[in-house]
Amino acid sequence: MITFTRRTVIAAAFAAAAMIAAPTSFAQAAPEKTDVTIAVGGKSLYYYLPLTIAERLNYFKDEGLNVKVVDFQGGSRSLQAVVGGSADVVSGAFEHTLSMQAKNQPMVAFVLQGRAPQQALLVSNKKMKDYKQISDLKGKKIGVTAPGSSSQAVLTYILAQGGLGPKDVAFIGVGSSSGAVSALRSGQIDALINLDPVVTILLQNGDAEMAVDTRKVSEAEKIFNGDLVAGTLYAPEAFVKKNPNTVQALTNAMVRANQWLTKASAEEVAKVVPESYLMGNREVYLAGFEGNRDALSPDGRFPDGCAQISLDVLRKVNDKLDPAKLDLGRVYTNKFVDEALKKYPLSK
Rank of each mutant, 00 (worst) to 15 (best):
S186D: 07
V154N: 12
Q188E: 15
L202S: 10
T232L: 00
G173T: 08
P197G: 03
V199E: 06
T214W: 08
G143T: 05
A230W: 12
K216I: 09
S135F: 06
V198L: 07
G226Y: 06
L159M: 11
E221Y: 12
T200Q: 08
F224S: 10
S186P: 01
V212R: 06
M128L: 15
S218M: 07
G226M: 12
P147H: 04
I189S: 15
K242D: 12
I158W: 05
D136S: 00
V144I: 10
A235C: 06
A180T: 11
G143E: 13
F224C: 05
G148M: 02
N245S: 13
D227K: 12
N194L: 01
I134E: 03
A180H: 07
E209Y: 15
A170R: 14
I223E: 05
L155E: 02
N245E: 09
L233N: 04
D196E: 07
N243Y: 03
P244E: 14
G206A: 13
N245G: 04
Q204N: 15
L202A: 06
G187S: 03
P166I: 01
Q188L: 13
D130P: 12
V217M: 13
A183I: 01
A191H: 00
D227M: 13
K242G: 05
A220W: 01
G173F: 00
D213W: 01
L228S: 10
L155D: 11
A170H: 02
L192T: 01
G143Y: 07
N205D: 07
S150N: 04
V217E: 14
L228T: 09
N245Y: 09
K129E: 15
G187A: 08
Q188V: 08
P236H: 02
P236N: 13
V181S: 04
A235P: 02
E237V: 01
E237A: 14
P166F: 03
K138R: 07
L155Y: 00
Q152C: 06
L195P: 03
R185L: 11
E237T: 04
Q152V: 13
S182C: 09
Y131Q: 08
D196F: 08
N243W: 02
K140F: 14
N245I: 04
P236R: 10
V144F: 12
L195K: 01
V212S: 07
P147N: 05
A180Y: 04
D227P: 03
D190T: 05
V144W: 11
G179F: 12
S176R: 01
V229C: 15
G143N: 14
S135C: 09
I142R: 08
T232I: 01
T200L: 02
Y234H: 15
S178W: 07
A235G: 04
K141G: 07
I201K: 11
P197Q: 10
V198P: 09
G148F: 11
G226P: 11
L233S: 03
G187Y: 03
A208I: 10
V229L: 12
N243G: 00
V240Q: 04
G187Q: 10
L195W: 10
S182R: 13
K216Y: 06
T246K: 08
L228I: 13
K242W: 09
V144E: 14
A183D: 03
T232R: 00
Q204T: 14
V144R: 08
S186L: 12
A238D: 13
S150F: 05
L228N: 04
G163A: 11
G206P: 08
G187K: 07
K222Q: 14
K241P: 05
K129Y: 14
T214F: 14
R185M: 09
Y131T: 11
Y131K: 05
